[in-house]
Nucleic acid binder design. Sequence first.
DNA 1: TTTACATTTCGAAATATGTCGAATTATCGA
DNA 2: TCGATAATTCGACATATTTCGAAATGTAAA
Lengths: 104, 104
Amino acid sequence: MFKALGNPHRLLIFQRLSRCCLPGTRCELEAAIRFSVGELGEGMEIAPSTLSHHLKALHHAGLIEMERQGKQINCWIDPLVLERLSGFFNPQTELVKIGGCDVR
Amino acid sequence: MFKALGNPHRLLIFQRLSRCCLPGTRCELEAAIRFSVGELGEGMEIAPSTLSHHLKALHHAGLIEMERQGKQINCWIDPLVLERLSGFFNPQTELVKIGGCDVR
DNA sequence: TTTACATTTCGAAATATGTCGAATTATCGA
DNA sequence: TCGATAATTCGACATATTTCGAAATGTAAA
């Protein structure tokens, strides 16, 4: 996972998708924001084939989900992935979510 | 930072050093465990020069601290680095430490 | 001061990664 | 069915990374 996040383009894509639990929103899968492949590439000066390659890498690393919706393919992050990653650096920490999300 | 953690050898080194806040311990810099370069390499089948190279990469990425202590060089992780990394994946989460550590 | 130990620096070689363009696949609408 | 749009696969190339051994550096002990 860290290897996949270690590339600047892939990290940017991941960050765009990781705003899945905004304040006042429940941190649940249905609330996860989605972007099509094309939308994710906007503003990044990168060939479509390169973008596709990076998305594949993120998906294979288990960082993002992908699903075809008509002509486009939508991408999102499962909030559990964010929790796992966060927890990796904080094994002795208990999470208390704010902003209307679950408290565990 | 993620690029540095993306290599299996470097991730292992980082994990060995990241047990800095065991249950019942305060999460403070003085409590951070330290290993010499040689100790960190134990069990890893890697040449000393390669180990040194990886340590340098981790240090340059801001992930570990290094300081000479006599013949050896000691390495440790500043707990703030762990908090920053954890927070990266959880911008909407408030941390509550357990096990005798500060509560913020 | 000489020696031993711990670690780093410096090439060099093999392998992996990032990138593109061209060709291909998938879906939708005319 | 045909054309347009969205995205992927493939092959090629330039660049970066990982790794090692040999030589150098820094420190302490004999």
